[in-house]
Design a protein around this nucleic acid. Structure first.
Lengths: 230, 230
DNA sequence: TGAAAGTCAAATGTCGACAATATTGCCGAC
DNA sequence: GTCGGCAATATTGTCGACATTTGACTTTCA
């Protein structure tokens, strides 16, 4: 034992950051975290460095690690990046695959859409939604885009969760779920209409962007004034 | 003194990796590096962790850090990602900026194209070329895309350098420089033709992709059999 | 001879301590 | 009362050592 602390610490830290357990712009205290996790500072620092490189945190020499300032513009930027990546992914997935490969991909997507409808809780809903998009990424056979999309999704997740929770408690606002959007994309892919599918994907993501941006604005106060679990 | 070793080590390591001073797939020995840099293993490990998160290296628990296998497909993936990012960047830059903002952006781009023609060596040529694209990224006002593009460029750089060196020593193959392509993109942006500019950008990058892929194939042997500077 | 088990050197994983630096709090001067 | 500077304190940066694990080599036994 006592061998894989970095991985443990990394996972925990990342989910803490994703949930905004730390206040934005607050400094992250290495010794406090080390104590919390029962390790020395070494694994904590390694994990923090990874999180910086992945865009979750910032770092200033001799000052330490900081949580990125909370900023609706940043959320918008993340969604815009998704639009860029995902519209191109669709083109690649359709151009790159043989007929059989495409059939297999569409078969997988069909199943995911079906699961989507049966999702039981919000976390699961998001998992399945992200899986739909990630499966297309895999169909595009571009590891780099897959990597980037995974990263974007995890950084966006918190805001979507906020949005979904809000919608659930205000049924009158309930917008259409993601399922119809996914189904439309799927049909156009099935028909080989790359540009149409890309356009639908763009609008699909842009709608989510607007929802998440609103959610971010609503969440602003609660994040800034919530207790950080030191 | 003895305070900012990580930054030093990181920069050196990155340029070593970019130049393929390490053989692809070879394991990276932490103690050897530490000795080489005259530090302990701690700063080396932090730098290596960053390089993993940035896509330069891979890591296997209890086995260590490895150079990514050299793989023309990977180069193609990097270029495809650039297409995705940069075509969208152009749309954003044109949609997002006021008339004056756009004028300023185009003024900057004009100057960069002029510098481009006057570049003295290959490294400088690449710097200026990357600056053209990065300036558009800044015009798009999307930090995330800027970050990603910077990362992509630095990982692609080696292959472009190989290509340019090869072209220089085989003047009969000399393809058109990047300048005309940039100029065309610039003109279309000036006229507000977002979709045309995006399309030109796509073709521009795809041409580079083909050149770099060939260069990668040519470089294959020399990389795999070159001495690694332990 | 060949395969399994054991041994050992080398590499990684983690730690606690110390050095360098930044931040905070205090005190006196104006 | 406020400002600037100094001391005290907290935090980061780096190190060398030790623990654990891996992988290669050797030995042993069928």
């Amino acid at each position: 034992m006592s061998q894989d602390r970095v991985a443990l610490v990394y996972r925990q830290l990342r989910s803490m950051v994703e949930r905004f357990d730390f206040k934005p712009e607050s400094q992250i205290n290495e010794v406090a975290l080390a104590k919390k996790f029962g390790t020395s500072r070494t694994p904590v620092r390694e994990a923090l460095n990874r999180l910086v490189a992945e865009g979750y945190l910032t770092f200033q020499a001799r000052r330490g690690f900081f949580v990125k300032p909370f900023n609706p513009d940043e959320v918008i930027a993340l969604y815009e990046t998704r639009v860029a990546i995902e519209t191109e992914m669709i083109r690649l997935a359709l151009a790159r695959n043989s007929h059989d490969g495409l059939d297999a991909l569409i078969f997988d997507l069909d199943r995911i859409v079906a699961q989507h409808q049966a999702a039981e809780d919000l976390e699961q809903l998001l998992d399945i939604d992200e899986l739909f998009h990630l499966t297309i990424a895999r169909g595009a056979k571009n590891h780099e885009m897959e990597r980037i999309l995974t990263n974007l999704n995890s950084r966006i997740r918190f805001f979507r969760l906020i949005d979904l929770k809000f919608k659930r408690s205000h049924p009158e606002l309930k917008s259409e779920a993601d399922v119809p959007g996914h189904r439309a994309i799927l049909e156009q892919m099935r028909n080989g209409e790359a540009e149409n599918a890309a356009r639908t994907m763009r609008h699909h993501i842009e709608r989510r962007r607007d929802e998440a941006t609103e959610a971010a604005a609503r969440a602003f106060a609660s994040i800034y004034f919530a207790d950080s679990t030191t």
